[in-house]
Amino acid sequence: MAERDERHLVGAFPSIPKQIRAQQKRLALLESGRSLFIEKGYEQTTAKDIASYAGVATGTFYRYFSDKRQLLLALLEDKMEKLMPPVPNWMHRNPEQLLASLLENYNNSLEAIGIHRVLPELLPKDPELSEVMLEARKSLHRRIYNGLKSAKDEGLTWGDLDLDTVAWTIILMVENSPEKAKQSGSTLEYDEMAKVICRLVFPPQIMEKLYISKSEDKR
C-alpha cells in the first residue's frame, strides 16, 4: 500500500486566516484544544469549551474548524513526526551514547506536547486515524530497518539477526517505556534503555570496540 498523507483526514478548513490577528485566534484555539483534550479527554471536550478556554466566541471556532476532530487532526498533523520514536544512527562512533540522548529528547518532547495521551481514547473509535498512525509506524519501521541493514552490511551487528523483528522490538520498547516507568514507579533511565537496545543489536566484540572508542573520546 502506498504511503498516505494524513492531511486528507483534516479536510478543507472553513477558513485559512491571513491576517495576523486571525492567525493568533486560530493558534489560540489549537492550544486551547490541546490543553483541554489532555486535561478532560477528547470525548468530554466540546467546541464550546475550546472556544471559551481560548477566550473567543463559539462561532469563531467554527470559522476555522468544522468540528473538534478536525482541530485534533490539525494538531496531530503538525506533531506527527515528534510523536514517533527517534531513528538511531547505528553507524555513529558511539551509538549507545547517541541513542540515550535521542531517547531523552524524544520523551521530553512527547511530554511537552502531551497530545499522545489522547490517542488511546480516540484510536479505537476512529479507523481512519488508526490507519494513518499505523502507516506512520510502518514508515518509522522501514527507516530503522534500513539503518540496521546498513550496519549489518558493515559487519557490525549479529549475523543471524532478523532485522524486521529487531526494528519492531525497538519501536515497542521505546513506545512503552513511559508506561514501564509508571508501573515500576521509577524514572526513565535512558542510558540503561540505550544499553539494552545496543546489546540487542551489537555482539560483544563490537560493543567492546565501542567502549574503547568511548574511553578514548573522554581522554
Score class of each variant (00 low, 15 high):
Ala2Gly: 07
Ala2Val: 12
His8Asn: 08
Gly11Asp: 14
Ala12Arg: 11
Phe13Glu: 13
Pro17Thr: 11
Lys18Tyr: 06
Ile20Gly: 07
Arg21Tyr: 10
Gln23Val: 02
Gln23Tyr: 04
Gln23Leu: 13
Gln23Phe: 07
Arg26Met: 10
Leu29His: 02
Leu30Ile: 06
Glu31His: 08
Glu31Asn: 13
Ser35Phe: 00
Phe37Asn: 06
Glu39Leu: 07
Glu39Gln: 11
Gly41Asp: 09
Gly41Tyr: 04
Glu43Ile: 06
Gln44Thr: 10
Thr45Gln: 13
Thr46Asn: 10
Ser52Pro: 00
Ser52Asp: 14
Ser52Gly: 13
Tyr53Gly: 09
Tyr53Phe: 15
Gly55Trp: 05
Val56Trp: 11
Thr58Leu: 06
Gly59Trp: 04
Thr60Gly: 09
Phe61Lys: 01
Tyr64Gly: 04
Tyr64Ile: 01
Ser66Thr: 15
Ser66Cys: 10
Asp67Lys: 04
Asp67Glu: 09
Lys68Asp: 02
Arg69Lys: 12
Ala74Phe: 01
Leu76Asp: 01
Glu77Leu: 07
Asp78Ser: 11
Pro85Trp: 01
Pro85Val: 06
Pro85Arg: 03
Pro86Thr: 05
Val87Leu: 09
Asn89Asp: 12
Met91Gln: 12
Met91Ser: 15
His92Cys: 09
Arg93Asp: 15
Asn94Ala: 13
Pro95Gly: 05
Pro95Ile: 03
Glu96Asp: 09
Leu98Pro: 00
Leu99Tyr: 03
Ala100Asp: 08
Ser101Lys: 06
Ser101Leu: 10
Ser101Arg: 11
Leu103Gly: 06
Asn105Trp: 00
Asn105Val: 05
Leu110Arg: 01
Leu110Thr: 08
Glu111His: 06
Ala112Gln: 10
Ala112His: 03
Ile115Val: 11
Ile115Ser: 06
Asp126Ile: 02
Pro127Asp: 11
Pro127Lys: 04
Pro127Asn: 09
Glu128Val: 00
Ser130Phe: 05
Ser130Asp: 12
Val132Ala: 15
Ala136Thr: 03
Arg137Trp: 03
Lys138Trp: 05
Lys138Ala: 09
Ser139Asp: 08
Arg143Ala: 13
Asp153Ala: 15
Glu154Leu: 11
Glu154Met: 12
Gly155Val: 02
Gly159Met: 05
Val166Ile: 11
Ala167Phe: 01
Met173Phe: 05
Glu175Thr: 04
Asn176Gly: 15
Ala181Tyr: 04
Gln183Gly: 12
Gln183Glu: 12
Gly185Pro: 07
Ser186His: 12
Tyr190Arg: 05
Asp191Leu: 05
Val196Trp: 07
Cys198Arg: 02
Arg199Ser: 15
Val201Met: 05
Pro203Trp: 02
Met207Val: 07
Lys209Glu: 15
Ser213Pro: 00
Ser213Asp: 11
Lys214Leu: 12
Ser215Lys: 08
Ser215Gln: 12
Glu216Trp: 07
Lys218Ala: 15
